[in-house]
């Protein structure tokens, strides 16, 4: 017994050394390259968040692995030198170890929850879908969102850009309410600009995942799901649907671009005027669109009257009754 080395200290030292090494290696070598990069504010802050979690997780992983490895190496029954195990009360519980374990895990867990909440709040929702009435939003977003519903909405560099993402089986289209509400098949964004994505769907649930932008929000029919980010770098990005939406879910992707502010303004104004005839045929800009009240989805009552959807702007509401 007396000759028995202090196993726990050994394990602790090995773990500590390996952990410090792994954390340092990770932080400086892998950390800066962790997806999705640093194209936007949310991308870089969530990358940082991921790295913090990783730095905490690596010692946990290494600790358990070192323990398992140490166990296998030292206490296999095949080793002749392995001492006989001892049963009895001492092997059954150890108040100190148990308390320490519970305290440490609780502290780590509570810290992580607090840290996550903090990051979520200062990140204005961290690029995730925040539902129709975001509680955490960047400065100027509320005004821009409110103004977007009026026909006089406009955008100037430095203001929040409102973009509507309309998902349907199996493509995304994008509307720019601050540019007359034109519709585009490609998502073009200005650099150094806070963007408010208003994600909705016309049919089933999709998920708008602008990978490099670190924006992900489910597209629900008749719900507006808002997510924010601020672009930081020029470049191309991928948009994929990340919620199973049927047959061609796998093919539901496109590519967007972050352009300079002036290029973006040029593109937007040019497209706005080029598309004006088409835009006039579109339903008025609204947060959500529901099928024509006269169509398949109309309310159906025994007395034969069709219930109007009244307060909500409806997709195709201007069409003549079929």
């Amino acid at each position: 017994m007396n000759k028995d080395p202090n196993h726990l200290r050994r394990i602790f030292v090995i773990t500590a050394v390996l952990s410090v090494a792994a954390d340092l290696l990770y932080w400086f070598l892998a950390g800066p390259h962790i997806p999705p990069g640093r194209m936007t504010s949310t991308a870089s802050s969530n990358q940082w968040d991921f790295n913090i979690l990783m730095v905490i997780a690596l010692p946990v992983l290494i600790g358990v692995w070192v323990f398992l490895g140490y166990t296998i190496a030292n206490w296999s029954s095949k080793r002749a030198s392995a001492p006989e195990p001892k049963g009895g009360a001492a092997a059954r519980s150890n108040m100190k170890a148990q308390t320490l374990w519970i305290v440490i895990t609780s502290v780590v867990v509570l810290f992580l929850a607090g840290f996550g909440t903090f990051e979520l709040i200062i990140g204005d929702g961290s690029g995730g879908g925040e539902g129709p009435n975001p509680v955490w939003e960047p400065a100027g977003a509320a005004q821009a969102e409110t103004a977007a519903l009026t026909s006089s909405a406009s955008w100037a560099p430095g203001k929040v850009l409102v973009v509507q993402v309309i998902a349907q089986q199996w493509k995304f289209t994008y509307r720019y309410p601050q540019f007359g509400g034109f519709e585009s098949a490609q998502l073009i964004l200005p650099n150094d600009t806070t963007v408010a994505f208003n994600v909705t769907s016309l049919d089933v649930i999709h998920s708008f995942w602008a990978y490099q932008l670190e924006v992900k929000a489910d597209a629900n029919p008749q719900e507006n799901n808002v997510a924010f980010t601020t672009t930081k770098q020029l470049g191309q990005f991928t948009v994929r649907c990340s919620e199973l939406c049927g047959l061609w879910h796998g093919a539901m992707y496109d590519f967007g671009k972050v352009e300079t502010r002036s290029n973006f303004t040029n593109w937007a104004t040019t497209t706005e005027s080029a598309n004006s005839a088409n835009t006039a045929d579109l339903p008025a800009f609204a947060w959500t669109y529901v099928p024509d009240a006269n169509g398949a989805a109309g309310g159906y009552y025994p007395d034969g009257t069709v219930t109007p959807y009244s307060t909500v702007e409806t997709y195709g509401a201007k069409q003549a009754a079929s």
């Binding site: 968040d49 961290s126 995730g128 924006v215």
Partner: peptide
């Protein structure tokens, strides 16, 4: 972790 979940969800 909600912020990381944005990256990894789905």
């Amino acid at each position: 972790d909600v912020p990381v979940n944005v990256t990894v969800h789905g």
